[in-house]
């Protein structure tokens, strides 16, 4: 039945960077309203997956497909993917000096929605989202990520997600480099935006953020492939055992 179809499907995805194969056949199936966590040690290919899903030119998909609403998006430019409703929160957001957050987000929203939005209308939209996420309104006038702290940059990624209202958000290590309070702020922000028509793929090394953004499914990625999947209890198991022990078990099971 059509309603049973996952709206986002990664099928046997292989990806190379400069002729090194990083992803070696990733499979993932996401339905509307689901939160999936992809966890794994450093170097397992998590960020490569995030960049590939958004279409970074340095990452070449050599096999497999990525279907979004039934359409293979691998040949599409990043901006087209954004227009389809895909959003990537960056692990390292870039600064654009001289461009205010407000102007940037208005241009971005107009591009993504492909319609005019009056300055006044947009301002209200932005300020509502800032209030919701408890982000100081002063950030609207500041240059995008220019001179922001690590935590501020991550919160701005969540703000961008809130403003652009994607159908699918891929969050690449949104918790990295943050202290406990900042993780809570970011985590609570994400859950306040989440709604039943939206799906999230949250990529993380540490389980802590998952207490605020509780995943329906947890996947463990090692060496460019998802080796084990489960429910939230898999994250709890990882938290209790640590990567060393868990990975040994996982690799034994899969060999």
């Amino acid at each position: 039945m059509a309603t049973e179809q996952p709206f986002f499907l990664i099928d046997d995805l292989h990806v190379e960077i400069e002729e090194n194969e990083i992803l070696q056949g990733v499979d993932l199936s996401v339905k509307r309203g689901e939160i999936h966590a992809i966890m794994g040690p450093n170097g397992s290919g998590k960020s490569t997956l995030a960049h590939t899903l958004m279409g970074h030119p340095s990452y070449e998909a050599t096999a497999g497909q990525v279907l979004f609403n039934g359409e293979d998006i691998l040949e599409r430019d990043p901006n087209d993917r954004a227009k389809l409703g895909i959003f990537l929160a960056f692990q390292y957001p870039l600064a654009i000096p001289g461009v205010s957050t407000l102007n940037f987000l208005r241009t971005s929203l107009k591009a993504v929605k492909q319609e005019e939005i009056s300055a006044r209308q947009f301002r209200k939209h932005l300020l509502d989202k800032m209030d919701l996420l408890k982000i100081s309104r002063e950030f609207a006038g500041r240059y995008l990520n220019d001179g922001f702290s690590g935590g501020e940059k991550k919160r701005m990624e969540i703000l961008q997600m809130a403003v652009l209202e994607p159908e699918l958000a891929v969050l690449d290590e949104i918790d990295s480099g943050l202290d406990i309070d900042a993780i809570r702020a970011v985590g609570e922000g994400i859950s306040s935006i989440m709604h039943p028509e939206m799906s999230i793929v949250i990529i993380t090394h540490y389980p802590r953020i998952l207490h605020y953004v509780k995943p329906d499914y947890v996947h463990i990625m090692v060496d460019g492939k998802i080796r084990q999947s489960g429910g939230f209890e898999l994250a709890e198991e990882l938290e209790a055992k640590g990567y060393d022990v868990l990975l040994k078990e996982v690799m034994q099971a899969s060999s």
């Binding site: 030119p57 954004a82 959003f87 990537l88 241009t107 971005s108 240059y143």
Partner: peptide, 23 residues
Amino acid sequence: FYLMSRGLSESEAAGMIVSGFIE
């Protein structure tokens, strides 16, 4: 890539970086 992931075409992205530069 960052700006394109937010819906801007490549030339719009470059244009935005340039206009920020001279702002």
